[in-house]
Amino acid sequence: MIIEAARLAVANLLAPETRAVFWKVLGITLLVLVGLWLALHGAFNSFALPWLQAFFPDIPSWVGWLAYAFAVVAGFGLAISLSLLLSPVTALIAGLFLDDVAEVVEQRDYSGDAPGRAMPFGPAMVSSLKFLFVVVIGNIFALILLFVPVVNLAAFFMVNGYLLGREFFEFAAMRFRPPDEARLFRAKHGSTVFLGGLLISAFLAIPIVNLLTPFFAAAMMVHLHKLLSRKDPSFSENLRR
């Protein structure tokens, strides 16, 4: 079931509609990072350099050139630092477009089923921030165990497998179920969802490719929710009894 959901998700990543969403998210991400670089670099030139000149008005001219060179190096360093934020910022912005990915999956592979309900902008933003938060916390926890042999790799997959599986499955489930029911459905099929999360963690561990993680995870969990719903069709009825 999990392998089938992953296979279908990869096929959905290649769909023109999904590629369009990805390029849109990547474009917004790059604009945000460039804007942040310009703001921080401008702030450095506007405040740090004048402060240096004000406190040392009689410094030799070569020191001024040294300060200019330092500003250039700082600009490159800032650019490299911001490049490290490419993946998490992409994940944050992608969280606002996950419903678009889910709709592509539902229209292409489940056109005969009732469509899901997209989250309003406010809850979508909260969900996006929550997703970023759990990923950051999960990786900090894994980083703490970085120097513990064997445990470090296991920690990365276990923590991210649980968090990513939970968040993305509940996202997919809440398109068709009330939040409380979605959480209970995820809890009932927790082992399957966790294994799906481990597969997402493996995807996350691949450099460059991991920029597609939110799209792969959303598509995969939409498929997994559909497959589990067909396997357990009486869940909602039993819950209401």
Rank of each mutant, 00 (worst) to 15 (best):
L78Y: 11
L78E: 02
A79L: 15
A79E: 07
I80G: 02
I80F: 12
I80K: 01
I80H: 03
I80E: 05
S81L: 15
S81V: 15
L82T: 04
L82P: 03
L82W: 05
L82G: 04
L82Y: 07
L82F: 06
S83Q: 08
L85D: 03
L85G: 04
L85F: 13
L85C: 12
L85P: 09
L86I: 08
L86A: 08
S87A: 14
S87I: 13
P88H: 10
P88A: 11
P88N: 07
P88W: 14
V89C: 03
T90C: 10
T90R: 02
T90M: 10
T90P: 10
A91K: 01
A91L: 15
A91T: 13
L92C: 14
L92R: 11
L92E: 05
L92P: 13
I93P: 00
A94C: 04
A94T: 00
A94G: 09
A94Y: 12
A94P: 09
A94I: 00
A94M: 06
G95E: 00
G95Q: 08
G95I: 03
G95S: 10
G95A: 11
G95F: 02
G95V: 05
L96E: 09
L96W: 10
L96A: 13
L96F: 15
F97N: 07
F97E: 04
F97A: 14
F97G: 04
F97L: 12
L98P: 01
L98D: 06
L98A: 10
L98Q: 05
L98N: 07
L98H: 08
L98G: 12
D99F: 05
D99P: 01
D99V: 09
D99H: 14
D100P: 01
D100I: 02
D100V: 02
D100M: 11
D100R: 15
D100W: 10
D100F: 04
D100S: 15
V101G: 02
V101Q: 00
V101P: 00
A102V: 02
A102G: 14
E103W: 08
E103F: 13
E103S: 11
V104K: 01
V104L: 03
V105M: 00
V105K: 07
V105G: 01
V105R: 02
E106F: 02
Q107E: 12
Q107H: 09
Q107W: 08
Q107S: 10
Q107Y: 00
R108W: 06
D109A: 12
D109K: 06
Y110G: 07
Y110S: 06
S111K: 09
S111F: 05
S111C: 00
S111T: 08
S111W: 01
S111P: 02
G112F: 00
G112C: 01
G112W: 05
D113F: 09
A114T: 13
A114I: 13
A114W: 11
P115Q: 00
P115H: 01
P115W: 05
P115K: 08
P115C: 02
G116S: 06
R117P: 14
R117W: 07
R117N: 12
R117A: 11
R117M: 07
A118S: 15
A118I: 12
A118M: 13
A118T: 11
A118Y: 12
